[in-house]
């Protein structure tokens, strides 16, 4: 059989790799190109107004970033946003939903699944707009709070970062839920049952049986959630535009603001490069987690 598989030696051995060319060309041109360009612009003082004046400034943009209060503010907000919405929110809620779904009745499971997944499938900008109305001063959340006789708030003004974090939880939990549902269904029932027979209570079973058995899924899920959350732009843009002031300005919004509203392409790109490096770091960790599958 393998006679047919390797027809000839020499030139043909290289020609048969030709089908890989279109994909590689696209990737080099539209992904590799911009990344190289990104490194180059980040080292210049390029501005939107004219390319002639751009000159090489070395690491000035980075030095400037670390002394810029607005940049530090964006870093802190990005950390808060990622921690709250991805690591605590989506991840924990997704795991809780998946665990509850195993115990719940079929109808309830289906209804919850449809609602949560619906929030995930909706386009980002629609989700942003829906949560804008939800958190707005005259929106539904305050209507509910009024009805419960609790103090209402102008959420998008007083706690914008909390509002966008909740928005991201609303939108992103379905992914974790799907990942964990798949992982939990692969745990053989004998294992949990024998732990139960040995007298382990629910918390012990979760801590010593379930979590260790799905740790690979937890790692993968945390990594993908964090990467996705780091690059959220549309949701925040639709809800607050990074405001009021810069109180919900995470790194992607800060980068956009510097590059286009303030016309400092060089500086904005330096920020983008930092974001890219963080993303690359997470990707490497992800690769290590996935190593067995390549």
């Amino acid at each position: 059989m393998s006679v047919a598989k390797v027809p000839a030696a020499g030139g043909r051995r290289y020609w048969r790799w030709l089908p890989i060319a279109p994909a590689t060309a696209l990737l080099l041109l539209f992904l590799g190109g911009p990344i190289a360009y990104c490194v180059w612009i980040a080292l210049t003082d390029m501005q939107l107004t004219g390319q002639e004046s751009a000159s090489f400034v070395g690491l000035d943009n980075f030095r400037r970033a670390f002394q810029d209060d607005a940049f530090i503010n964006a870093v802190v907000l990005t950390l808060v946003f990622t921690l709250l919405s991805s690591i605590i929110g989506q991840n924990t809620l997704g795991l809780a939903l998946a665990a509850l779904m195993q115990r719940a009745g079929k109808t309830v499971r289906t209804v919850t699944g449809v609602v949560v997944i619906c929030a995930w499938v909706l386009p980002e900008i629609v989700a942003g707009f829906l949560l804008y109305t939800f958190f707005h001063r005259q929106g539904t959340l305050n209507a509910v709070l009024d009805w419960l006789h609790l103090p209402s708030q102008n959420w998008l003004f007083t706690l914008p970062i909390l509002a966008v974090s909740f928005a991201n939880i609303w939108r992103g939990t379905a992914f974790s839920m799907l990942v964990y549902s798949a992982a939990l269904s692969e745990i053989p029932t004998e294992v949990t049952e024998s732990a139960q027979v040995d007298g382990a209570n629910a918390r012990q079973r979760l801590w010593f049986i379930t979590l260790p058995m799905i740790r690979r899924s937890i790692g993968t899920n945390l990594m993908l959630n964090t990467l996705q959350t780091l690059s959220v732009f549309g949701l925040i843009w639709a809800m607050t535009r990074g405001g009021p002031g810069n109180r919900s300005q995470t790194l992607p919004v800060f980068m956009y603001d510097q590059a286009f509203d303030k016309a400092l392409i060089g500086y904005g790109t330096a920020v983008a490069l930092l974001l890219l490096l963080v993303g690359a770091l997470f990707s490497v960790i992800y690769l290590r987690l996935m190593r067995e599958e390549v």
């Binding site: 360009y37 992607p252 980068m255 890219l276």
Partner: peptide, 16 residues
């Protein structure tokens, strides 16, 4: 590796 890179981050250079 590239599946994980945040595309948002390279949009400014892509624009350029």
């Amino acid at each position: 590796f590239t599946t994980c890179l945040p595309i948002t981050a390279i949009m400014v250079p892509v624009y350029g």
